[in-house]
Design a protein around this nucleic acid. Structure first.
Lengths: 142, 142
DNA sequence: TTCCTTGCAAATCGTTTGCATAATG
DNA sequence: CATTATGCAAACGATTTGCAAGGAA
């Protein structure tokens, strides 16, 4: 598996690269089809996995049963709005401290960590009425 | 939906109650069948969801594509061994601090959070050779 | 030419759901 | 009796995979 170059893979990566949200495979598929109308969902998935295994992107498991993708591989946390489902990045100082604190009383070796914060996003707080097409999903999986 | 009592639901909960690991629906299904050989997977799922919505148990999304269940609903974090897949509880001081730190520079309202730590568990560290039937899955979804 | 990639469609697999019947209050 | 819960099997939906054909080194 010497990994050859492919236009489709580039397209998938480029689509993800300049995005601040965290799209799912379907969204990426739809987006890339503008440029490559014949690309298949399978190819999108395969490339997403290759990109992840290569360390170019990361997967984000929000707990809604669908995998989200993120081109920002730097260590950062995510916030999931329980009202609209939006996934945002969450900057946080002393993010390293958390890992240290956890490692303190743990016998195994901790190599990484990811945290998910749930709540109501700024936008949803503003419009007090909740979107008609979407019911709250307070606790899914997390 | 007045929620009547059911033996099967009790069985599901009791199976989960005295467990420190975080079994999946399939494991719970297999376990409960000792007592109720005719119980169906669907019933197990339905009851697990009821128990979750009732706050009796919580779901844990490890990132392996399968939902894990935990009867310990107290606020605590989890550690996932990337070598054997084991999911352990991870005690951690100042767990509240983390939420505060995160809330500091965030515009929305944070109601809850869950963190997942990845690494190699104590047991796997001991036996340096990795189990033959399982390959490393360093980064799945997280 | 060799081997990786693609597109397509079929296959997986965890989870959900419709329905007729059984259990509960 | 009025409802909720169950078992079974079929339905779902996201992700994966086999295969023949196309593209890159």
């Amino acid at each position: 598996m010497a990994l050859k170059h492919s236009r489709q893979r580039d397209a998938v990566y480029n689509f993800l690269k300049d995005r601040k949200d965290h799209p799912t495979a379907d969204t990426i598929y739809a987006g890339v089809r503008d440029e490559y109308p014949n690309i298949s969902l399978g190819t999108v998935y395969r490339n997403l996995m290759v990109l992840r295994d290569t360390g170019k992107i990361r997967t984000v498991d929000v707990g809604d049963g669908v995998i989200h993708f993120d081109a920002d591989t730097s260590e950062h946390n995510h916030f999931i709005c329980t009202r609209c489902g939006r996934v945002e990045d969450l900057e946080m100082e002393s993010i390293d401290r958390v890992k240290e604190i956890a490692a303190a009383n743990f016998a195994g070796k901790i190599t990484g960590y990811s945290a998910y914060f749930y709540g109501v996003c700024e936008r949803c707080l503003a419009e007090q009425k909740e979107p008609a097409d979407r019911q709250d999903r307070e606790q899914t999986t997390g």
